[in-house]
């Protein structure tokens, strides 16, 4: 019944997918289905129809374009567990279970846009850009600012996320997350770091309604990297910058505290990598 033909499109090219979407403006775009399918089973989401991207081969796989890595939006998370960027690989490895990683896509993670989604801090720290394609052409936007509220993005009507572009310039990057279990858990909070040429860029998950980073935090993090600031300074800067949720999983106070700890630890790892720390 879910797959009733008039409501279900199975395009094989990006062009067909865009046409299918134009014909069914209310349809849910589904890739791996790891969010949409449970939502349907638990009846927390209804759908007027579906456009499945599963057979759009052009959306899968990674390539190089100049100094950017282009990751097709339909690339499964499992394909990224050995990515060169440490943050990307670590975020991919800690997502769900092997079965979920095989189905879940990087594009799905971005468009889902929930603040605890695994890949988002890594993409934000890595300063990813998003390739958005519509009938009228293609535009590229920064991931920073793409999410405007939990589950809400700047993706336009009739527009598909077709690729995630990541800078390949050498850097140290890493990603960590914490929860109440040691595997297969939604992040209570998460954080990612990129350290390049002595500058540190941090990003945080479930630290506010959208993936979060802050210039003020990065200034202090960079100072911590080269010894001009202490861990307490960074914790204070993080505590000021974040606005984490309070829920039955954890208090906002704990999340704020933990985000400061994670930030500090990530900068220390960057220090060690740069030969600056112990």
């Amino acid at each position: 019944m879910l797959l009733a033909a008039p409501r279900f499109a199975l395009p094989e090219t990006v062009g067909e997918a865009l046409s299918a979407l134009a014909e069914r403006p209310d349809a849910v775009v589904v890739a791996g289905g790891t969010e949409v399918m449970p939502d349907l089973l638990w009846r927390v989401r209804t759908a007027a129809g579906f456009v499945s991207l599963r057979r759009v081969g052009a959306l899968r796989g990674t390539s190089r374009d100049g100094d950017e890595l282009v990751v097709g939006a339909g690339t499964p998370v499992a394909a990224l567990v050995d990515a060169e960027a440490g943050a990307l690989a670590a975020a991919a490895r800690s997502l769900g279970t092997p079965l979920v990683r095989t189905e879940a896509t990087i594009g799905g993670n971005v468009v889902s846009a929930l603040p605890y989604r695994n890949m988002l801090p890594a993409l934000l720290a890595l300063d990813a850009r998003l390739e958005l394609t519509s009938d009228t052409g293609r535009r590229t936007v920064a991931f920073d600012g793409f999410t405007t509220a939990p589950g809400v993005t700047r993706l336009g009507e009739g527009e598909l996320l077709t690729a995630v572009r990541l800078p390949t310039r050498p850097c140290f990057s890493d990603y960590v997350k914490i929860g109440r279990r040691n595997a297969q858990y939604v992040a209570t909070v998460s954080a990612a770091v990129v350290s390049r040429n002595g500058a540190v860029r941090l990003a945080f998950g479930n630290a506010g309604p959208v993936p979060l980073r802050s210039d003020a935090v990065d200034v202090v993090a960079t100072a911590l990297l080269d010894g001009r600031a202490g861990p307490d300074d960074l914790r204070a800067a993080v505590a000021d910058a974040v606005d984490p949720p309070e829920d039955t999983v954890a208090s906002a106070a704990y999340r704020r505290h933990a985000l400061g700890v994670l930030a500090t630890r990530l900068v220390v790892r960057a220090q060690v990598d740069a030969g600056l720390g112990s």
């Binding site: 800690s94 990603y175 960590v176 997350k177 914490i178 040691n182 595997a183 992040a187 998460s190 630890r265």
Partner: peptide, 15 residues
């Protein structure tokens, strides 16, 4: 042995 936090890799032996 396995560190606290598991796949999230937030801990290191020193912590």
């Amino acid at each position: 042995g396995k560190l606290p936090g598991g796949v999230g890799r937030a801990s290191s032996p020193g912590s």
